[in-house]
Write a protein that binds this DNA or RNA. Structure first.
Length: 362
DNA sequence: CCCCCCCC
């Protein structure tokens, strides 16, 4: 008997929702619906390698599982995107809200003693990768947000692979840009990074003249040239996927899309109005807007966003840090909110610690 | 224990 069948018979399969940190003896049956790259890290707590998978069970419940070092090396090749596994002997802990990518209060850690068996015999009733496509003309609200998007479109062009030098550590990374269009008659540039540039990117280049459909899960939405898309380690790229949206898009393109003139979704958007005025930063102003208008906020509160460097923190003003987000090595995006008097010493200490954390993490 | 996701 195959090990996976034995495992299935000797242990009840637990639904993912029933797992918690206090009950260790379980077996789950899950599909790998996302697989991250193997990464190495080095920080104050040590160094090592790590990778994540997202797992989905028959109820559609998802959880993120993380493997470090020996476990990462042991299971990296065993876990294949889209396959179904029996897993036991993992541990659960409360998920860090700040980083969680799936809807689950817990996250799972697998160590080298965890059991991972492919359920190869199964006609498993577990959902495949599910997309939630955002039409290209609706990408605005996602610009620079933490939320990732799925996009489907017709590939209009494919660039050669480029070698990009990463500013942070001078290493080079392969990149390829593709232009994608959809029924909203808008186009957007999608940057494919790393293996996606060299593998599926090459495949797309080879068939670019056939205007293939591409469906991409988990894209980050940036603001380069108004609106831009970029793959992450966990992104999934499917060429001519067999799904209804693909067929619909193909029909549209063949019947009228290919004759239609289409504009870049980011074109004509100035930096402050990029993303069609729907971005969380669409009310962004310059500091001059505030300093040149002494009556601003006099009769009613004024709301706006700014992006600025912190050059000095005055110790005699009340402020409250409401959000504090790392942007890049030269810029920190800090959202501060003027508010009723608070413990400024504590707030400024917090703020400064956050900034030094950001710098340390570069 | 990661939590980065790159470039114009």
């Amino acid at each position: 008997m195959a090990p996976s069948a034995r495992m299935a018979m000797t242990r009840r399969v637990h639904p993912l929702v029933s797992l918690n940190p206090y009950q260790g003896n379980w077996t789950i049956k899950v599909r790998v619906t996302s697989k991250g790259n193997m990464r190495t890290y080095k920080n104050a707590r040590g160094e090592g390698c790590v990778f994540n998978v997202e797992l989905t069970d028959g109820d559609g419940t998802q959880i993120q599982a993380t493997m470090f070092n020996e476990a990462a090396k042991k299971f990296y090749d065993r876990f294949e995107l889209g396959k179904v596994y029996y897993i036991s002997k993992g541990t659960l802990r409360v998920a860090n809200k700040q980083f969680k990518t799936v809807q689950n209060d817990y996250e799972m850690t697998l160590n080298e003693n965890s059991e991972v068996e492919e359920a190869s015999d199964e006609a498993a009733c577990i959902p495949e990768t599910k997309f939630k496509f955002v039409p290209i003309d609706q990408l605005g609200p996602y610009v620079n947000s933490k939320d990732l998007v799925d996009v489907i479109g017709i590939v209009q062009s494919v660039s050669p692979t480029m070698s990009i030098r990463r500013k942070s550590n001078n290493e080079t990374v392969p990149k390829r840009d593709i232009v994608v269009a959809d029924e909203t008659k808008k186009t957007v540039v999608v940057s494919l990074w790393n293996e996606l540039a060299t593998t599926v990117g090459q495949e797309l280049q080879d068939i670019a003249d056939k205007s293939p459909v591409v469906a991409i899960k988990s894209l980050k939405v940036g603001d380069f040239q108004g609106i831009s898309l970029s793959t992450l380690g966990k992104s999934i790229v499917q060429v001519n996927p067999v799904i209804s949206e693909s067929k619909k898009l193909r029909n549209w393109y063949d019947s009228e899309g290919k004759e239609t003139s289409m504009a870049s979704v980011g074109s004509g958007l100035s930096p402050s109005t990029k993303s069609g005025g729907r971005s969380m930063y669409s009310d962004r102003v310059s500091l001059a807007h505030i300093t040149s208008n002494p009556s601003l906020g006099e009769d009613k509160p004024a709301f706006f966003s700014i992006r600025a460097y912190i050059s000095f923190i005055k110790p005699d003003q009340s402020m409250c840090v409401s959000q504090n987000e790392y942007n890049n090595e030269k810029r920190q995006r800090i959202t501060v909110r003027a508010t009723a008097p608070v413990d400024f010493a504590a707030e400024s200490k917090f703020l400064l610690e956050e900034i030094s954390k950001m710098r340390a993490s570069q």
